[in-house]
Amino acid sequence: MVNIIEKIEQAGLRGRGGAGFPTATKWQAVKKQELQGKKIYIIANGSEGEPGVFKDEYILKKYPTEFIEGIKIALVEFADSEAVIYLNHTYYDWYAKRLASISKGFPINYFRKTARYIAGDETALISHIEGKRDEPRIKPPYPAESGLHGMPTLVNNIETYYRVFQIAKDQYQNKTFYSISGSGIKKQVYDFPVDYTIKEVLVKSGNWPKDDFFIQYGGGAAGSIYLPEELDNVLPGAASIIIFNRNKTNPYKLMRYWAEFYAKENCDKCTPCREGSMRILEMLKEDRFDRERVKELFLAMEQSSFCPLGRGMSAPYKSLIEKVIR
């Protein structure tokens, strides 16, 4: 029998949380720690805080057994291990009971996320479970070495465990769940091959708009803006497509939505992200968006923010300004 980690590696599975880190590498790093006799924590990240991403919920609703099976595979793979399923409070309230009845008899615990968006970051999530402030931690050490309660910890997205289950059953067809939403269409999840171009995804799902449009790909906050002519590509980031009607969308309103989101949902630890997000919101609220000043803020955020949230915050704004506002 081929070992599950080798199978994951052969399948080329990448984490479905958005960053796309090779899953096998994470599992191998944890394996190395397990071989030293350490207790292992297995975490399923179901915080799904990004606007426009709702495929974890889709799995919880449609494939709870398969997802739990995926967790069990990890529990079997790592000898002395225990799992925590970390769910945002809505998902927890709606699905935890049912999941718990499925996972009965296994060392699987449920944690209700009350924290912000940033607590979807794997280290901030660990801090939150430990009862501390939901701030990302300095890496290294990576969770695989020292995570929850200082023990080696495997953190994967809910969908990743679902795909692991498929791989174990030889049912994996190199697919991923696309969350598609936006103006004039029904909010829905589609299971398509990972190498589909965005155009293919939109056409095959019947969502290619008739009117002039642009999309945000990679999440309703962190994603970048793309024009129709840019969609003959596979794009990086979370598989989320939000469609905007170009003629009906006020780009300043859209930016204000992002600014509200970031100002509230970041952890406020580091200067450029905390103060920068505040100042962008302030400018948009007061209707005096100063492009030069914003450019400076973006540079400081990209170059000096502590975590990827702050470093990537400029991407949606910059692409919207460049492509849509001009």
Binding site: T271, P272, E275, G276, R279, E296, L297, L299, A300, Q303, S304
Partner: peptide
């Protein structure tokens, strides 16, 4: 130049609070 540009922004932000 890069260090000075970024630090100037961060310092302005901190000083403003």
């Amino acid at each position: 130049e890069l260090v000075n540009r970024v630090l100037a922004v961060n310092l302005e932000l901190l000083f403003a609070q």
